[in-house]
Nucleic acid binder design. Sequence first.
DNA 1: GCCTCGAAGTTATACGTAAAACCTCGGGTG
DNA 2: CACCCGAGGTTTTACGTATAACTTCGAGGC
Lengths: 343, 343
Amino acid sequence: MTDSHQPAPPRPTSRDVARAAGVSQATVSLVLGGKWPGRVSEATAQRVRECAAELGYRPNLAARSLRLGRTRTALLVVPALTNEFFARVYTGAAAVAAEHDFGVVLYPSPDGTGPARDPFASARAALDGVIASSMASDALSALHGAELPLVMLDSDPAGTDAAAHVNLDIADGMRQVTDHLLGLGHRRFVHLASAVDTWTFAVRAQALREAVGAVPDAEMRTVRAPLNVRAGREATEQALAVAGERPTAIVCDDDILAAGACKAARRLGLRVPDDLSVTGFDDLALATAVEPELTTVQLPAEQVGERGMAALLAVLEGRPAEPGGLPVRLVVRGSTGPPAARA
Amino acid sequence: MTDSHQPAPPRPTSRDVARAAGVSQATVSLVLGGKWPGRVSEATAQRVRECAAELGYRPNLAARSLRLGRTRTALLVVPALTNEFFARVYTGAAAVAAEHDFGVVLYPSPDGTGPARDPFASARAALDGVIASSMASDALSALHGAELPLVMLDSDPAGTDAAAHVNLDIADGMRQVTDHLLGLGHRRFVHLASAVDTWTFAVRAQALREAVGAVPDAEMRTVRAPLNVRAGREATEQALAVAGERPTAIVCDDDILAAGACKAARRLGLRVPDDLSVTGFDDLALATAVEPELTTVQLPAEQVGERGMAALLAVLEGRPAEPGGLPVRLVVRGSTGPPAARA
DNA sequence: GCCTCGAAGTTATACGTAAAACCTCGGGTG
DNA sequence: CACCCGAGGTTTTACGTATAACTTCGAGGC
């Protein structure tokens, strides 16, 4: 409450700049717009730029949007920002957006919290395009009908009618995991899969099935769990309680599930990796926080966001989006090792 | 590439609604604005509302902002979204904002990544207010000079000239931790502190110092580390390598550091909590992913965002912001226990 | 010497909304 | 009867920008 209400020095407009430079408002707009190099003499342009800088002129975005009908704003639809992967996707997208004077506004689809508001009720009018994760399926239905350019992240390229797709080489990642474990000598696997049924997890499952199926004496069981530590632990405890030869490796759809699997192992008196190897997926911060550290697949999350935003910009300008999947990389750490000698 | 460029059915404007309802554009604005209850007959208002709904009319936000000079958009300045705490703060802020038809745009201050762009270069013109974490100190300097209402999160109430403050009862949390450990019988402590020097960490240090200082035979050493697992581990290894009686408890400024401390203990052959008790702060997802699970202080992160946004809305409307700190709660888990019997 | 032409501007307009200021008309009032 | 008044609108304007359409002027061509 120092001097709460100054007369509030009104932000300078292009007209103020024009007055200061002794030209018309249109000239200011021409100069600062940077187009039509031949329309204004370099001397005048220089003067206008100086005055603009001196006054601290910033174009009014609302007016610009109104005039142009475009807002230079994209919507990023993700399941939840508390998921580190999507926080990183946002970071990447925002970085590329900033380079092109674009803004990114988020719609984390409500996971129970908050009222079931239409995310586009207010936003739809102010967006140039949408980047959406396939994992935010509930929000995707709301997208239907919006006539906006759409870039899909990690979704079935054949499934949706998006203007562009940005995908990770998930299948390759899962193959790397399998090769690693098979190379170590593992033959009896459990696939600890995500309970949610999106493309990215379907790809994991299929790649794993194929890789294991190609080895004659290898076998695999699948259990499903929601994406949290406790569920991963409980599912693993169940899986290990099944009669028959104990599996020697658990392949998890996600680091969070892997952390749960490790906890289950410890509870059952099994050592990781001596008695049980565990692999994760994503390489979250979690992966190096637990003991032992997780062997996992590193995903270039920021790049997903960057490519997504770049693709949207391309679509908006009528250019083709850069094709091709993003490479992923197996990181071998302490949670995997050769299986114990057969009992 | 199905039918990429339809004539793009132009979004209906208030004038379209007016035409459909047989009234003037001004009437539509009056009705939909909801003010001046006496200016339009209920019958007419009803008709206008019906036509608007039928046409799917959404006011053009750019035009509204231009007219009103306000954008109904707030900037949230946080260090990094990949920090779960701030992701949750955002979630809370966005939820409250949505209830009031406000938007939240993020400025995660650059931690090395991305160009050193002025975050307000484009945004400043389009913001009604700012909510800033004290941990985003680099971005705060950029705020200086912006004549915007400012709400500070977890910052020294006396230090900044913000319009409102939203603070957690950090000191109380640290006292709960100390009481817990002292009650278990611990007397020799290490404070594993954050290397960054912000208010929230200063409060932790002081509360801890006071609580330990009040017990005659208690002693404490302090070591500092950046907020990541490896640094926490290394700092702990160093602290435990010091000659003299080994400390029996490590109080960490953050769960991430606590995870590092646990790893250090394991490397040195110490069991947690038998040989060494470890406490965290924040109650991140991490806390229940590691083994043993961390005794830590649960912070209502979403509420920080909610209160922050509510405070900003209050300031914008000239109302006083709700005062008072947000309570925090000690959660006792497996990483703390009584110290081993004296050797 | 007249016409054209390009360079370097200017003037004018539209974007969609909110709201101030203005109309219109029927009924009560002095 | 002249007057005002309020209910229920309408007309008009301003917000700040981008750009289409127009002006002006000196140089050059024939």
